[in-house]
Write a protein that binds this DNA or RNA. Structure first.
Length: 871
RNA sequence: GGGAGCUUAGCUCAGUUGGGAGAGCAACUGCCCUACAAGCAGUGGGUCACAGGUUCGAGCCCUGUAGCUCCCACCA
């Protein structure tokens, strides 16, 4: 082994080896139980960020754990075409070259997009590999691959035939920059400070006016009514009359509708069915015409009269000026309101009537809700089920058509002759109704999430009835951020149920956002993003992985900081050095199974600790509490194994007794080997690199069996007894420090104890670790000499003669401190035992324990009091 | 308007069937003892946001309050 821990020496090499020897490959094996994770496919828009690093680390940790446990573990990787996001990026890149989509044409643009895909997919996969991700690359899937496209086609046609997909004129969210429709989920709302403009609409044939309040005056060209609440005493007399649209002169009716809120604004609301979802509904109720006033790019159309061609905001400005001059604008009231923005380009979204394709959600939502209710699908942590219900129960129809080129083209053809709409599983050549060859495919593509929704089964071969699909589906756990529950998780659930008749996964393990060290969201605009590759380059992948897992509870946001990675890198260094100690120590020694050597009490203690760690790590991993599992391993490795056991092993290791030496080395190797296996899912590189040097191991640790709890090695009693030895060592160290005794100065320990056998058996360890030169058993304090410092322990009382080094006052202080501590313990325990309720209702075991503690403390107090007196 | 989460040591956070408050970093003291100074030993530091309640017993369960964060819906 290299003397220094340097991840650069082995991370890439090991990954290559794993990949080349097929360690990641999952092949159906009917002797094994499958365990499947499909990777949330990263967008091919750019590169990975810390969120991906965390996502992939969690998945890799789970899949490696399961693989070692003997499951046929499949982690299926892929990438997403990310229709709107990618197209926007490519368009931007083209713009820099002075090119437009129109110039290239559909074919040319798509060619360019596929080139982009190749480049970025390759880059992303390289990044995923750097992290150590053990995914089966032979199954790498892209959402626009042939097989995914076939699944999309199958699903679309099936839904179409079931009337669950329909085309219609509805209010949708329109992004004027991306020039496409968006689904409700793709709109983000942000509060903006705007105005409520109060505008006079004269009532036809009278000299009175109704004043309407609006935040978007430019839409008034599309007003086809004004509404008042029928219960509104102020206005109900006007219902049925007309008003004249200012600046337009068009006459529109006054209708009575509940939608008008008497409390808000003036109580009179303009109705613009083409540009507001509520107005659209009012329009339907009153049979109002729908007048669109905007073009696709957000400019005003011919209905805006002289403002036609102007940008919507420019129009607003000029129109307001005109209204002000004519006296129609009576009031401007500042008003904060929520405005929808495109989740990709952040432009203000315009609600607009448009002919689009929709998925009818109600019939799909119900089974999807039930699957979670019935615990067929479980969210971890559970609270996210509520978020899911909330959305699912109120979901509206899903707008799936996008006016883009990059994506799955909608598989519907229109006959120019008879007007038929053709939706079949194979591309039609002629119109099946009239035989005309003049048929044309819909120009639009599908929402990216339409194909993502099929991911758990499209990747496994659907619609073919493949062996993989039968074996690996339903998948086991889906790992992703809570921010895509609506976009993705919910849609996979209803899609799985609808098309596979089975849930797509059993558990959904959620994680939060990775924020920067100040708790801010990492974003390009803030420039506070951290590139995982740079971190890996500096500290190694294992340190990054550990830092992303440690101290993170499922579903919670976490902060990234270099300091944290550095702390983890120290842990790697610790593991490295401890391993080097064990492995060098084992050179030339025949290592035996721990069952075949005579074990010291220290040996039994560490083996016992290991057993409980195995148990706890397995339990927490099965509950997906990766952060807790990390902590358990960290504490065991650093404190128990390194700080205690390795130090305890040294007397035997450096001693003359060859049998003892062989025994202690056997234990060191046993504990190290098992610790490496326990740690491997979290930090795969360093554990495998060390594993190769551990005596008696073969091949890669990746394929080794995950440690199993062995009750025969639990040694509960021995481990508890050994606590007395540790207590003794700690006590001597503390006394020495308290009295400013230099660590190098060896002290003589006099020990009044019943546990002579235990102490004698561990004498060498105590002397070494406590910095002592001798232990003498005594039956009375006097035997230890006149001036001694005493320390009362649960196993007995220690006396240390300190000669002139002892400061009497300091010692008195120390004893008084101890007295106070013990007295507090007594009153705590006594209080509990005095409590009749506790004694009668608490478990007997607990009461007995408490009683034993109390007795011990009382003894200790007496000892301390005696000591104080003797001073 | 509806929902969720958070509030624990100076900082960042764990703490999952209720049974003596934890880690990392920071701080203080002392140590280069042949795995590791990226280290070791020791120390200090918390009315677990606040107020009630349930219980023999509450950081944990219930109710309410305050502050912060997020999600959904949305009054033009």
């Amino acid at each position: 082994m290299e003397k220094r821990y340097d991840p650069k020496n082995f991370e890439d090499r090991l990954y290559r080896e794993w990949e080349e020897t097929g360690c990641f490959k999952a092949v159906r094996d009917d002797k094994k139980v499958p365990f499947t994770i499909v990777m949330p496919p990263p967008n091919i828009t750019g590169q990975l960020h810390m969120g991906h690093a965390m996502d992939d680390t969690m998945q890799d940790t789970v899949i490696r754990f399961k693989r070692m446990q003997g499951y046929c573990a499949l982690w299926l990787p892929g990438t997403d075409h990310a229709s709107i996001a990618t197209e926007a990026k490519i368009v931007r890149e083209m713009a820099e070259e002075g090119l437009t989509k129109e110039q290239l044409g559909r074919e040319g643009f798509l060619k360019r997009a596929w080139e982009w895909k190749d480049k970025y997919e390759r880059r992303i996969c390289t990044q995923i590999k750097k992290l150590g991700s053990s995914c089966d690359w032979s199954r790498l899937t892209f959402t626009m691959d042939e097989k995914c496209s076939r699944a999309v086609r199958e699903v679309f046609v099936n839904l179409y035939n079931k009337n669950l997909i329909y085309r219609g004129d509805r209010i949708i969210n329109w992004c004027p920059t991306c020039r496409t429709a968006l689904s409700d989920a793709e709109v983000e709302y942000a509060e903006e400070n705007g105005n409520l403009w109060h505008i006079k609409y004269p009532v036809e044939g009278t000299d009175v006016s109704l004043v309407v309040a609006t935040t978007r005056p430019e839409t008034m060209f599309g007003d086809t009514a004004v509404a008042v609440n029928p219960a509104d005493a102020r206005y109900k007399k006007y219902i049925g009359k007309n008003v004249v649209l200012p600046a337009v002169g068009r006459v529109i009716p006054i209708v009575g509708d509940e939608h008008a809120d008497m409390e808000f604004g003036t109580g009179v609301v303009k109705i613009t069915p083409a540009h507001d979802p509520n107005d659209f509904e009012v329009g339907q109720r009153h049979n109002l015409p729908v007048v669109k006033v905007m073009n696709e790019d957000g400019s005003m159309n011919g209905n805006a009269g002289k403002y036609a061609g102007l940008d919507r905001y420019e129009c607003r400005k000029l129109l307001l000026k005109e209204l002000e001059e004519s006296g129609a604008l009576v009031k401007v009231q500042p008003h904060a309101h929520n405005v929808g923005h495109c989740y990709r380009c952040n432009s203000t979204v315009e609600p607009m009537v448009s002919k689009q394709w929709f998925v009818k959600m109600q019939p799909l939502a119900r089974p999807a809700i039930n699957a979670v209710m019935d615990k067929k699908v479980t969210f971890v942590p559970e609270r996210f089920a509520k978020t899911y219900y909330n959305w699912m129960e109120n979901v509206k129809d899903w707008c799936i058509s996008r006016q883009l080129w990059w994506g799955h083209r909608i598989p519907v053809w229109y006959c120019s002759d008879c007007g038929a709409e053709i939706c079949e599983k194979t591309d039609p050549k002629v119109c099946p109704s009239c035989g005309s060859a003049r048929i044309k495919q819909d120009e639009d593509v599908l929402d990216t999430w339409f194909s993502s929704a099929l991911w758990p089964f499209s990747t496994l071969g659907y619609p073919e009835d493949t062996s993989d699909l039968e074996y690996f589906y339903p998948t086991d756990v889906l790992v992703c951020g809570y921010d895509i529950i609506f976009f993705w998780v919910s849609r996979m659930i209803f899609s799985g149920l609808e098309h596979m008749r089975k849930i797509p996964f059993r558990d959904v393990l959620m994680h939060g956002l990775v924020r920067d060290d100040k708790g801010r969201k990492m974003s390009k605009s803030l420039g506070n993003g951290v590139d995982p590759l740079e971190v890996i380059d500096k500290y190694g992948a294992d340190s990054l992985r550990f830092s992303l897992l440690q101290g993170v509870a499922p579903g919670n946001d976490t902060r990234y900081s270099d300091a944290k990675v550095e702390a983890c890198s120290n842990f790697m260094n610790k593991i490295w050095n401890a391993s080097r100690f064990v492995i060098t120590g084992a050179e030339g020694v025949k290592v035996l199974p721990v069952g075949e050597v005579k074990l010291s009490s220290a040996d039994k203690w560490i083996i016992s600790r290991l057993q409980s760690v195995i148990k706890d790590v397995t339990i927490t991993m099965n509950k997906f509490e990766l952060g807790v599992a990390c902590q358990i391993m960290y504490d065991f490795m650093w404190s128990d194994f390194c700080d205690w056991y390795i130090e305890l092993s040294k007397p035997a290791l450096y001693g003359e007794d060859e049998t003892k030496k062989q025994a202690v080395i056997s234990v060191l190797v046993y504990v190290l080997e098992n610790s490496l296996k326990l740690l491997h899912p979290f930090i795969p590189f360093i554990t495998d690199e060390i594993y190769r040097s551990v005596p008696g191991t073969q091949g890669t640790i990746m394929l080794a069996e995950f440690p199993r709890y062995n009750s025969k090695l639990a040694y509960k009693k021995d481990a508890a007894a050994f606590g007395g030895v540790m207590e003794t060592i700690k006590a001597v160290r503390a006394v020495k420090t308290d009295l400013d005794c230099p660590p190098s100065r060896k002290v003589h320990i006099y020990f009044a104890t019943e546990q002579k056998r235990l102490i004698s058996a561990n004498k060498d360890s105590i002397l070494k670790l406590a910095g002592a030169k001798e232990i003498t058993f005594v039956s009375s304090p006097a035997e230890a000499g006149e001036k001694t410092v005493a320390k009362v322990l649960s196993v007995g009382t220690l006396f240390i003669p300190m000669g002139d080094l002892v400061d009497i006052e300091k010692e008195r202080e120390r004893l008084n401190r101890e007295l106070a501590e013990v007295t507090a313990e007594i009153s705590r325990a006594d209080g509990k035992l005095q409590n009749a309720g506790f004694v009668s209702k608490a478990p007997k075991k607990l009461v007995d324990e408490e009683r034993a503690k109390l007795n011990k403390y009382i003894e200790m107090r007496e000892e301390i009091l005696k000591r104080i007196e003797n001073l």
